[in-house]
Amino acid sequence: MRYWALVAVPTVLTAAFFYAASDNRHEVSAQDFVNLQQGNAIQPGFRRAHAKGFCVSGDFISSGTLAEYSSAQVFQAGQYPFIGRFSVAGNNPTAPDLKAPVRSLALTLLPETAEQWRTAMNTPPVLAVGTPEKFYQQLLALQNNTIAEFFAAHPETAAFRNWRASYQPTLSYATEQYHSINAFYLINAAGKQQAVRWAAVPTVGAANQLPDPEAVDALQQELFARLSDGPVIFDLVFSLATSADDENDATIIWPDTNPQLIAGQLQIKQATEQSNGQCNAINFDPLVLPRGILPSADPILRARGAAYAESHRRRAREVLLNTATGAHHE
């Protein structure tokens, strides 16, 4: 009996640790997601999603308009530096810019401070589905060319499909709108919370030509050329939820009639290749938030943290092994 107990103790303990470490106990784990995103052709050192992109930096000129809603430093009137990244969707770091269905702008405002705020914004204002498990099925359907069936089986994809049908990609990163998609809470000094979404809204009209439309990095060239003429500017516009909106459901567009407040201007001043830019080491995890901003309970928003972290871990390990073995690193 005592010997059985002696065997049982380590056995139960080992089993418990194995269970905790297993990613198979989840319907979809962070590892499943990143495996699906990276596909079979792994690009060492690159992000598993949005692999193609470049670094930018500049200043956010905060108007102070949101100071009454949030105690975050970034919303107090002033000028705050940021590191950012423009990118296109996909796992291929050499894919043609113009072929990508989605473009992105990611930012780390006030980097390396306690008041740091990271946001990863995309051109679609909504998601097709509301949970990571369904999102996984959507990505699978895209790969298997069964997306039409997937959309038909999921009525909540209507807003996304409408957006996709009406969306016309422009010829510049500078003339796209980039959306937070998920909602967050602004928390003011009195502890009052307000659900919001935000978007970087361009301040110039659509361009009508590219320096080289045939180039793989046509959009990157365009933005680099544009920056030589001066900063690229976006308004950072916040949409405030009303009692009619569900902040935990990113499949529905909020009405234009919701209060819209301009938090300030994003002034992009420099751009560099990502291989030697500061943005390359940053995981633009939208859950890195300063005091004064909290995440909503949107299941997809909460899932982004672990999925982004797994991608970050894999490429960091590859860069480390590359450095350690002295292999050439691009």
Binding site: R25, R302, G305, A306, A309
Partner: peptide, 19 residues
């Protein structure tokens, strides 16, 4: 240890609080 092992695989709502 248990939280650490869970939070690197889980896409759940609690992942953020666990971290």
């Amino acid at each position: 240890l248990f939280v650490g092992l869970s939070m690197v695989t889980s896409l759940g709502l609690w992942q953020y609080q666990l971290l």
